[in-house]
Simulated scan of single mutants.
Amino acid sequence: MPQATISLHNKEFAPYLTEAELLAAVRRVATELSRDYAGQTPLLIAVLNGSFMFASDLLKELTIDCEISFIRVASYAGTSSTGAVKEILGLQDSVEGRHVVILEDIVDTGHTMKMLLEQIGAQRPASLEVASFLMKPECLQHPLTIKYQGIVIPNKFVVGYGLDYDGLGRNYRDLYQAV
């Protein structure tokens, strides 16, 4: 059971989705990926920091061989997207000729994902898809196809399960919504 309303910095957050609901979505995405990449060894690229819990739980549920790599980008200040995407830790692995799946915690404006798809796509992977744990379609500012979607949520700021508010809240097992 999620704890009652939590306070992070100057904001209050109420329980939104439970750990059980989150893990059910992870299992569904893992089933889809395992089916679509059967007989292949995709390279999963987890976008840090937010996707670390999603990536960890997803890998435990996959029934296929895969490799994982990590990149780090930043586009948020407080509770809003800055509109500018800053690469902090770049991709070290070659993706040419590989089946690649980008693992993202949340796609809202789409700025980060647009930039990542362009950069990784330019390296000529055999295929390139996105698995986003959370989707905010109301916020999308770029035409993106997100093939693997965990949970579609409304345009509310959320924390927990890897997502933060100015560095706090990533450690909660449940998802909390700003009130």
Rank of each mutant, 00 (worst) to 15 (best):
M1C: 12
P2S: 13
A4H: 13
I6G: 08
I6R: 12
S7G: 02
L8C: 09
H9E: 09
N10P: 05
E12C: 06
P15I: 08
Y16A: 12
Y16F: 15
Y16Q: 08
T18N: 09
E19R: 15
A20C: 02
E21K: 07
V26I: 15
R27L: 04
R27D: 13
V29E: 00
T31W: 07
S34E: 07
Y37H: 14
G39V: 11
Q40N: 06
I45N: 00
A46R: 06
A46T: 11
V47D: 02
V47Q: 01
L48Y: 01
N49S: 10
N49M: 04
N49V: 02
G50Q: 05
F52W: 06
M53W: 03
A55S: 15
S56R: 04
D57I: 01
K60T: 02
E61T: 01
L62A: 07
C66V: 12
C66H: 14
E67L: 12
F70W: 08
F70R: 00
V73T: 15
A74P: 02
A74S: 15
G78I: 04
S80W: 03
A84G: 01
K86L: 15
E87Y: 10
I88G: 00
G90C: 07
Q92L: 14
Q92T: 15
S94P: 03
V95H: 00
V95Y: 00
E96F: 01
R98D: 00
R98V: 05
L103F: 04
L103A: 08
L103P: 06
E104W: 05
G110F: 11
G110D: 07
H111E: 12
H111R: 08
T112W: 07
K114L: 14
L116V: 00
L117E: 08
G121A: 09
A122G: 07
P125C: 04
A126I: 11
L128P: 09
E129C: 10
F133R: 01
P137F: 13
Q141V: 07
P143A: 13
P143M: 01
T145N: 13
I146H: 05
Q149N: 05
G150K: 04
I151A: 02
V152D: 05
P154D: 13
P154K: 11
N155C: 06
N155T: 09
K156D: 08
F157Y: 15
Y161W: 11
D166M: 15
D166E: 15
G167F: 14
L168V: 07
G169K: 13
R170Q: 08
R173C: 03
L175P: 10
L175D: 03
Y176L: 07
Y176Q: 08
A178D: 09
V179R: 11
